[in-house]
Design a protein around this nucleic acid. Structure first.
Length: 680
DNA sequence: TTTCCCAAGCTTTTT
DNA sequence: GCTTGGGAAA
């Protein structure tokens, strides 16, 4: 076989170009080195708050300024929010040119690749995307069809099955491997589960559907099977920049290799101490194996923290020493001064909420804008009590990691109609649409759908098949509506309006108790449609970038005062705030009770606390209720998180809460005199 | 076959 | 508290 010798591209000299940004003045030497590094592979190890984002932003600007065409730069981030923020910062630095840089999540970039090339792997390009609950529903349909749902022993539920499949996809493992390692209780079902996985894949293919994992796995398959496509895509990726590399999984690492296969210019940025997505298949070994994958890699480090004051860093450093794995990273700061972080023991969660609200009020008076303050917590429901209190005091807030608009049942119903128009073979959407009709159950829905999918001609024509009179009238109305939209070339806005007009009576009869509230959501939804013109794009962004319900409410409330941020710690990754509250720092919550048995999972919970702590610039308050309400068996005494138990008071100052006036003298005395006290 | 009702089981983090 | 699954009536 003939041998190919690859000639490296010579970096053209940029000496002649006049740079408009003072890189060495704006950045410290380590940041400067990373931002202005030349071609090849680079791994930037950056501790929390060391200006990782800033460095990436400057790197983008630098590349553009030195002549790299902006649309040949690919910036992969963890959320769309992060990528939008970085690109807007880069655009501020360097006029508008950076807005042409291609940025987004792995999922969204893969989507754009597949929309152009999916026919090569047998997928029409109008495929629709299943979110995780859609996917679980599809699994359920397949499972029922296969007759696996009944048997002597309990077969796994649809959500469990889907997450099992997802684990396999994200970790590049086979179904039996996943069952053996993570779901040993289903060992007896290995055959059936593998079988089901195949059927699920086949069903998706037949009905032109992709779930989240398919977006990545099918792209990999496309590249593996069609090197010409890979080269074409990779040939447009002159530089690939990857943020939060510690949270990538096997499939994503593979994708990065593909993307930079032509030019070999890749910059990965990450911090192994901040890896918090192992539950989703993230493999922090990716960082350590990076030098093996890219032998000529240059490893750069960012160590100086610019974000937090020294007392906060002392605490963060102390927390991370409790990990079973060693992280040899000590953050330091120039900002020596600052208050000690506080550990606030509240009698119960109402006191905790009052405490948080009162301090937020004080900060607001000290003219710290509300959106520079964040309340962080482990899980979405941890903030319910606080949300009540905030509403009572009219403090506007957005909650990230809460209920998404597109997850509400009634919104999903409307979306399903649009999906049917976009992809008439989308069985999941048809199923949803048909089940809304009186007199149609799973069986009939299945029949009608099979019939629609089997025909190649105009999918929205009802012929003279003998439909049962029980539902023929509503079915005719549905098809008439779909057909008129399918044939007309109306705007998306108009389309959504028509679907809503059709759906409103259904909404009324299904949810008559709280139908006005739901109608309001649908109006929000219609408002979103105005901003997009392309239906496929609109549907994709609903799936890949779901809108938080509270975001719309806060926006509506007062456009002048940006709202307070409530967020799960996961969703706060990469963000920073003047003041951070970490609430519900309880054993069983942070660390989560699910993690207690597994040392690796426990370590991840610890890193989660580390991430939360290092979001703070100036003030940090960690609080927990001493008594917790449980659903049925009443109250019980709660223990603070084990991660905080052994921390010295010189690093984390204990506070207790005292009622103003009303507090009896004994209570005052009972509180430890040495402890700081905050009167209400 | 659909729909309604009741009991049982689970309950995190995200694209 | 909410979803899911099973059973029985219409």
């Amino acid at each position: 076989m003939a041998r190919r010798f690859v000639l490296k591209r010579e970096e053209t000299s940029q000496k002649a170009v006049e740079l408009t940004i003072d890189y060495s003045g704006d950045l410290n030497p380590q940041q400067y080195a990373a931002a202005t590094a030349g071609s090849g592979a680079h791994l930037v190890i950056a501790g929390a708050g060391t200006g990782k984002t800033r460095t990436l932003v400057y790197r983008v600007a630098y590349l553009v300024e030195t002549g790299v065409s902006p649309d040949s730069i690919l910036l992969l981030t963890f959320t769309r929010r992060a990528s939008a923020e970085m690109l807007s910062r880069a655009s501020v630095l360097l006029d508008g040119r950076c807005s042409l840089v291609r940025g987004g999540t792995f999922h969204s970039f893969c989507l754009s690749v597949l929309r152009r090339h999916s026919e090569r792997i047998g997928y029409p390009t109008n495929f629709t995307i299943l979110d995780s609950s859609d996917a679980a529903d599809v699994v359920d349909v397949v499972r029922t069809a296969a007759g696996l749902h009944k048997g002597t022993k309990r077969f796994p539920r649809k959500k469990t099955l889907y997450s099992l499949f997802s684990t396999a996809a994200n970790r590049s493992l086979s179904i039996p491997e996943v069952v053996e390692s993570r779901y040993p209780q289903f060992f007896d079902f290995i055959e059936d589960i593998s079988n089901l996985s195949d059927r699920y894949a086949e069903y998706k293919r037949r009905h032109v559907l992709m779930d989240y994992d398919d977006l990545m796995c099918q792209t990999i398959r496309l590249f593996d099977e069609h090197p010409d496509v890979r080269n074409a895509v990779s040939g447009q990726c002159r530089h690939v920049l990857v943020d939060e590399y510690q949270d990538t999984n096997r499939a994503q690492a593979r994708l990065v290799e593909h993307f930079c296969s032509v030019y070999g210019n890749v910059t990965a940025v990450g911090d192994d101490a901040q890896s918090v997505y192992a539950f989703r298949g993230a493999d922090s070994d990716n960082i350590f194996e990076f030098p093996d994958r890219y032998p000529d890699v240059r490893v750069l480090k960012l160590e100086q923290n610019y974000r937090s004051r020294q007392p906060i860093l002392h605490l963060a450093n102390k927390i991370i020493t409790q990990a079973t794995r060693r992280y040899d990273k000590v953050l330091f700061s120039d900002e020596k001064e600052g208050d000690l972080p506080a550990l606030v023991a509240a009698p119960n969660d109402q006191f905790e909420s009052r405490f948080v609200c009162q301090l937020i009020g004080q900060l607001r008076e000290e003219s710290v804008p509300l959106n520079r303050t964040a309340v962080l917590f482990r899980s979405g429901f941890n903030s319910y009590q606080l949300e009540i209190e905030l509403n009572r005091r009219n403090i506007p807030f957005v909650k990230y990691g809460g209920v998404k608009l597109s997850e509400a049942a009634h919104v999903k119903d409307v979306i399903a109609h649009l999906k049917v128009l976009e992809n008439p073979r989308d069985a999941a959407a048809w199923n949803r649409v048909l089940l809304l009709l009186e007199g149609i159950g799973p069986k009939t829905a299945q029949e009608i759908m099979e019939w629609v999918v089997s025909r190649d001609e105009d999918p929205f024509v009802l012929d003279d098949r003998p439909f049962s009179p029980r539902y023929v009238e509503s079915l005719t109305a549905l098809f008439a509506m779909l057909r008129s939209l399918f044939n007309a070339t109306s705007s998306l806005e108009n389309e959504v309006e028509q679907v809503l007009a059709y759906y409103e009576p259904i909404l009324k009869s299904r949810y008559f108790e709280d139908y006005p509230k739901r109608l309001q959501d649908l109006e929000h939804f219609a408002g979103l449609a105005v901003q997009t013109s392309d239906r496929a794009e609109f549907l994709a962004s609903l799936a890949l970038d779901p809108i938080e319900l509270t975001a719309l409410e806060a926006e509506a409330a007062d456009p002048d005062e940006p709202p307070l941020v409530l967020s799960t710690i996961h969703s706060a990754k990469g963000l920073e705030f003047d003041t951070v509250f970490i609430i519900q720092a309880l054993e069983g919550i942070l660390p989560s009770s699910y993690s207690l048995k597994d040392p690796d999972a426990l370590d991840e919970e610890l890193r989660l606390l580390y991430v939360a702590v290092t979001r703070a610039e100036r003030n940090l308050f960690i609080s927990y209720p001493m008594v917790q309400q449980r659903r049925f068996d009443g109250e019980y005494f709660a223990r603070p998180s084990r991660f905080l138990e052994d921390i010295d008071e010189s690093l984390l100052e204990p506070w207790s809460l005292v009622e103003e006036d009303a507090a009896p003298v004994e209570k005052q005395l009972a509180a430890n005199n040495d402890r700081a006290q905050l009167p209400f």
